[in-house]
Design a protein around this nucleic acid. Sequence first.
DNA 1: CCTAGAATCGCAATCGATTGAATTTTTCGA
DNA 2: TCGAAAAATTCAATCGATTGCGATTCTAGG
Lengths: 346, 346
Amino acid sequence: MFFRKNVSPLPKPTKIRNIKELAELAGVSPGTVSRALSDSGLISAKTRERIKDLAAKHDFRPNAMARNLRIQKTGAIGVLIPLGHETGQHISDPFFITMLGLLADALTEQGYDLMLSRVIPSDTGWLDRIVDSGRVDGLIIIGQSDQSAVLDRVAARYRPMVVWGGHTPQQVHCSVGSDNFKGGDLAASHLIERGCKRIAFLGDPKALEIGQRLEGCRAAMARAGLSDGLTVFPAHLVAEAAQSDIAAFLGTGQHRPQGIVAASDVVAMSALRALSERGIVVPDDIRVIGYDDLALAELTVPRLSTIRQDLTKGAAALIDLLLRRIAGEDTPSLVMEPELIVRMST
Amino acid sequence: MFFRKNVSPLPKPTKIRNIKELAELAGVSPGTVSRALSDSGLISAKTRERIKDLAAKHDFRPNAMARNLRIQKTGAIGVLIPLGHETGQHISDPFFITMLGLLADALTEQGYDLMLSRVIPSDTGWLDRIVDSGRVDGLIIIGQSDQSAVLDRVAARYRPMVVWGGHTPQQVHCSVGSDNFKGGDLAASHLIERGCKRIAFLGDPKALEIGQRLEGCRAAMARAGLSDGLTVFPAHLVAEAAQSDIAAFLGTGQHRPQGIVAASDVVAMSALRALSERGIVVPDDIRVIGYDDLALAELTVPRLSTIRQDLTKGAAALIDLLLRRIAGEDTPSLVMEPELIVRMST
DNA sequence: CCTAGAATCGCAATCGATTGAATTTTTCGA
DNA sequence: TCGAAAAATTCAATCGATTGCGATTCTAGG
């Protein structure tokens, strides 16, 4: 590890620092410049063009902070990732980047900046601090984690906030997500159809969404008269940890499950590898189904069957609802249909 | 897909909107409140505590925009992901989330916000616009992509900017990254040692870093007298695309390579699956080595040998250098040693 | 009890852009 | 050519917090 010098930079000609300087350079008042730059109809076309050209020539752009203060808007949307149910979790989860990428694109398109924060809720006021800081015009929260209470409390006083995750009848906050209960049901039903009688659920049900997926599995098992066949293993979402946990779990010889419902594709991937290393063949010996249908699901060996959540549609909905809330509207939550994707692992 | 109503929210008691209101409520001047809240020594301990308590009781936090304007700082660092060499690329690459997570943690710890932007450089002024918008105190750019010229030009006038990626002797901008040439050399040498005489390089060398890795491979091959044994296949970083490309490439029967150097772990993953589906056994038939050593590399079947870049150290260095640049220092670039990690795929 | 000097606190300018109201300039019909 | 309406521009207040400087209060020594 060593340092290398960079070629040294060049100086630069004088620059316009604010709207006032640009104004006296153009021989008009600051107000006129402001209106010209913002395409106000109150300015004659010729001076507007003149000022715009001048601004372009000096590549001047009005100060965003000053504008924000006056307008009382920041032009930024906060995207929060609460890591409550899993302290010390590093988001190695590709789910986040997929969602983040979609949000970043859509927000940029709408002219908003994206402020990213990972929050590890130490106390109950973490969300209030962010809301009251006045740094964002609205908030998108990815996953309730185990913080539903906090979300509900804040949602009661702060409108421009939308949450990706599960939906419960009594919740106050506006959410977007797939029907996790139905998704879990779909997954378990699929395994049952394939002949599985003993099924393991891998995932930590403390997170709202995952708990709902588990309930869905339970319902499917009950319907099939297999209520006793479901085992829950609260595998962590962290890939490395899940790895050894799953291996240990599957070591329980004769009661080995015939099917695995993983709480996410990443957990499923961990399971696939653990199984492969123990010489257990998927899907012949054990069938595995994931959740999310990330791009990764196509890359596993064998290709992963999974429950698809349409993240593209989800991201679009999150932003649509948020913008409407910023505009003052009171929007309902959105629950999307999950879809069973059958590939090679079941 | 359907909507569900949320429970309606409650009203709230009157709230302090600014420092002035808090001041008259406390019977002091706004200036005093400001000083009290910012722990200025010019205020007596008792009034300071009194005001702080009052602020806490009304959970009042001074407006960030106003503060920013006055202080001439935003408290935010921009993180940019240029997607130049690959139009339409969706960052499904776990590399980004790994880096982003590390940066988010470290920046939060330093009291900075993180503003994320994905940029698809349409013209040559994309970076100037961001710099001049005045929305951030500094910039971290992840990967030069094919935009080195733009980076150099802007670096000449804008100091608080650090780039993750490759380093060239003539570059103007400050960069942090591993020695890609040496990394490529390491990868190819390892395969050569294992007996490979025909090696394929998978990755698009238009991106600076990847081009350097390729050069490293070339050097290793030349040293071993195998200059003719290297084939380059410009596989896209996009997982799905890489998939079919790689499969097509490996269909070229008798000249099939004995080893594959993938430009990243994600590309390597694609290769592994393509091989597996064609019944080609790794490492017996073909050896595969990746680059990055992401968490994913532990989850592939078989576990992926790879060239490790210490992203934790890298992220820390990016931020350290950036903060020093913000403070006015002129920092050199940092080149870290890559490390060969041998697992099961070679 | 008086006063120098330190400890607190208030006053008012400032950051840079926006915008309603006032003012000046232009336009155009009579 | 005059004057009123319309168009263009200027003026000045405002957003909310920070901070140098001046004013006031307090402390303590003589």
